[in-house]
């Protein structure tokens, strides 16, 4: 299995868009402003295709918030943002006057929270729609050179296929593109797809 059917993709996109809607609502409560968050595209990549160009990541550094979840299938969910932009968004959210270059550890906790909100929203939407129960670890934030982060992802999964969600987030005038990467083993992906097929056939 190297690709998803149109209907499977459509179902996944809708699941994650509902998650994105939930996350946008939570974020707008925090920033007291309108937040736009959408998942325009869900794609299955060969792990060999994952690089900065393919994901059009033009930043030298990448911030990643990771949660590991378990349930009927296990996966690591990682939210990838270009570090500079993400920090700007967090800065705006904090209403802080400090320069971006001074972004400190406790502000990175805020990055963790931003990622946590989006990841939880996507996971909970998946759990609700597919009628399953997922447990999750707490989020961990890390930052590194773009290529190194991507290489690490490929290395860790050691799987031929990686599920990638494209994410657009806008708060006030700032716009941020990110990626939500699901690292699943082949057998976990198979189980996820069987849940989706069950969901579709139940309509």
């Amino acid at each position: 299995m190297n690709s998803l059917s149109d209907l499977q993709l459509d179902a996944l996109t809708e699941i994650f868009n509902i998650g994105a809607g939930r996350a946008a609502s939570s974020l707008s409560e925090i920033v007291n402003d309108e937040v736009r968050l959408s998942v325009p595209r869900v794609q299955l990549y060969q792990s060999s295709e994952i690089n900065a160009d393919a994901l059009s990541l033009d930043s030298p550094r990448l911030g990643a918030v990771k949660q590991s979840f378990s349930g009927p299938f296990n996966a690591d969910a990682m939210l990838l943002f270009t570090e500079e932009r993400a920090m700007k968004i967090v800065h705006d959210m904090m209403g802080s006057q400090v320069g971006i270059e001074d972004m400190a550890e406790y502000e990175q906790e805020a990055m963790c929270e931003l990622g946590n909100i989006i990841l939880n929203a996507c996971l909970s939407s998946m759990a609700d729609m597919l009628d399953l129960t997922l447990d999750s670890s707490l989020p961990v934030y890390s930052v590194g050179a773009t290529d190194a982060v991507l290489r690490q992802i490929i290395l860790e999964t050691n799987q031929p296929l990686i599920l990638v969600l494209h994410i657009n987030l806008s708060i006030e005038k700032r716009h941020l593109q990110g990626y939500l990467v699901f690292l699943l083993s082949s057998s976990s992906l198979q189980k996820l797809l069987s849940h989706i097929d069950r969901f579709i056939s139940g309509i």
Partner: peptide, 24 residues
Amino acid sequence: FSSNIQQSHQTRAAALGARFVAKP
């Protein structure tokens, strides 16, 4: 129908005379 339940969307729907319904 929208998953985005932010107030601004609900207000817009109401102003149009439409009903806002939260997805899923």
